[in-house]
């Protein structure tokens, strides 16, 4: 698949090479690099990469690149976004800590709002999750799993 990455790189010798290395190591193909020196932000320079990478290596590539640079946009989209979800069920009794921890392996639960009408009744909660755009499907998959495992009921945002 072909992707466009907008990355900020430190303006120091050798920085670009740090980015090229993981790309090369994964056998991805660089189609073009546009360096915008005049649009410098502090001591960082925006660079746009157009890369051909095999679909199953995409996530590894992003992870590797994040270790050495800041990815601003993937295919012109903000890398991160907020996803709101509603969860209904015995939210607390089914180990809410564990639920949040597992969501946090994919995104970050930033805010939780919980209503418990009665100890015997199901409670309802909303969660605001900060997440990489490309991980949303993974998150939804996890929610399906939690649904089955803990008898919870998730309501997702329309994307």
């Amino acid at each position: 698949m072909r992707i466009v990455l907008d990355i900020e790189v430190r303006d120091k010798p050798g920085e670009l090479l740090k980015i090229l290395t993981p790309i090369a190591n994964l056998g991805a193909n660089i189609i073009s690099i546009i360096h915008s020196r005049e649009e410098r932000v502090g001591n960082r320079i925006p660079v746009r990469f157009v890369i051909d990478v095999e679909e199953d290596k995409f996530k590894t590539l992003i992870n590797e690149l994040e270790k050495v640079a800041i990815i601003k946009l993937i295919d012109g989209q903000k890398k991160k976004r907020y996803v709101d979800i509603v969860v209904i069920g015995h939210v607390v009794d089914t180990d809410i800590r564990d639920t949040i921890d597992r969501i946090n392996t994919i995104g970050l639960v930033e805010d939780l709002d919980l209503l418990m009408p009665h100890p015997d009744l199901e409670s309802s909660a909303t969660m605001k999750i900060l997440i990489d755009n490309y991980k949303i499907e993974e998150l939804f998959y996890l929610l399906d799993e939690l649904e089955k495992e803990k008898g919870l009921f998730f309501i997702k945002t329309l994307l």
């Binding site: 509603v86 209904i88 069920g89 709002d113 209503l115 009744l121 309802s124 909303t126 309501i155």
Partner: peptide, 12 residues
């Protein structure tokens, strides 16, 4: 399984 509380929270 939708509860009135869930709708209330969503509204918020």
């Amino acid at each position: 399984r939708i509860t009135p509380e869930a709708i209330l929270l969503a509204n918020k």
